[in-house]
Design a protein around this nucleic acid. Structure first.
Lengths: 197, 197
DNA sequence: AGGAACAGAATGAACGTTCAGTCCGAAACA
DNA sequence: TGTTTCGGACTGAACGTTCATTCTGTTCCT
């Protein structure tokens, strides 16, 4: 038994199972993640998983829930509602981008779960609600101060989210295309130029 | 037998199978697309599929190949190498965005296949090569004319691709968030502001 | 001892793939 | 022309595999 597994022995069993599932889905996708293999990686029997999760679908949904909470807390870390518009924009989306780049497993996992029918569109939107709240305020202020283009929030948010997500993804999947890690600052400058009035 | 099936009867059988597979994967994802159901939708027996494709994996790869060819030809439609930088940028990415928005099935399919391990990273890059060629020329010219920020091509392309892809996706999955279809022009203005020097 | 937690073999459903047989139009023959 | 033979495209039931889930006996703790 290796060091990683030793560590896991001491963790809460439910957490072990979630971790194992996350690793496997991130690496191979949802469909190549049989319960027997989850059990093996979590160092438990297959039956044990069903003491913590009713079905595989519920396990995956719980995983998604946990993941979005972690991501949201990263995005909001050090977020200062009283800072200026541009500072807040850079803080929020910089946190988002760095989280995605520094946690490739979570990024891949998020991608897999987002494309999976096990997670409903409703669950996805619910998960992002708190983040959207902060962004809505930010954009409303920015528009009223004539700092940000007068376009629907959805467009501004979706474009920013899409470009940063894709940058993190490409760097993970084709690292040879990016000799060194692309700094958040450079990307945020592009995003800011895109949306500034 | 309905009209659609009537039409399909006359199509090349191989094409029927590809179409049926495309519909099913786009709607439900790769894993909820059993060969028996492909056969049903293609109006043939399960065995017949194997006269045209060695395995399900090959079927999926052929589908991906065909899809990327169609997409590339849409992107390059009416592309005039002698037009000015901005016009070419708007032409190429406008074509891309409109194709994605007007062909939701193909968009969903592309998303599913891009997240699937049945398609290798190599195949994905090969497929996009011709498009990247045109973009590389465009960006080199743009940078030398000081019209475009002096950043690596990969960054500019990935950011643009990511934001437009996400816009098309969000409009398809959450149409209620966008009361009317978002015009390509508006989005391209954002993209251009992002990358212009 | 008694009960809760656990492991892993057993179960049955779903899937990709195969193959023995059917069908149909064209060629060969009368 | 009418009849027979042939070849290969097609079918779908059957097979073996893989998986989620359940079952049963064991271990661990109090």
């Amino acid at each position: 038994m290796n060091v990683q597994s030793e560590t896991r022995k001491n963790m809460d069993k439910r957490q072990q199972i979630l971790e194992a599932t996350a690793d496997l889905i991130a690496e191979q996708g949802l469909h190549s993640c049989p319960m027997a293999m989850v059990a093996k990686h979590a160092c438990c029997g297959a039956g044990t998983i069903y003491r913590y999760f009713e079905t595989k679908e519920e396990l995956v949904q719980q995983l998604f829930l946990h993941l979005t909470e972690v991501m949201a807390s990263h995005c909001m870390a050090g977020y200062d509602e009283s800072a200026c518009i541009k500072k807040r924009f850079y803080s929020f989306w910089g946190n988002f981008y760095r989280y995605m780049r520094e946690h490739p497993r979570d990024r891949a996992l998020m991608e897999q779960l987002s494309a999976s029918p096990a997670i409903s569109e409703l669950q996805r939107e619910k998960a992002l609600e708190p983040m959207n709240k902060a962004l809505t305020r930010l954009l409303a202020e920015g528009k009223s101060q004539m700092l940000i283009k007068d376009l629907p929030d959805e467009i501004i948010t979706t474009m920013t989210f899409g470009s940063l997500t894709m940058m993190a993804k490409k760097q993970q999947l084709s690292p040879q295309m990016f000799p060194q890690a692309v700094q958040a600052e450079d990307l945020l400058n592009l995003c800011w130029d895109a949306i500034k009035a």
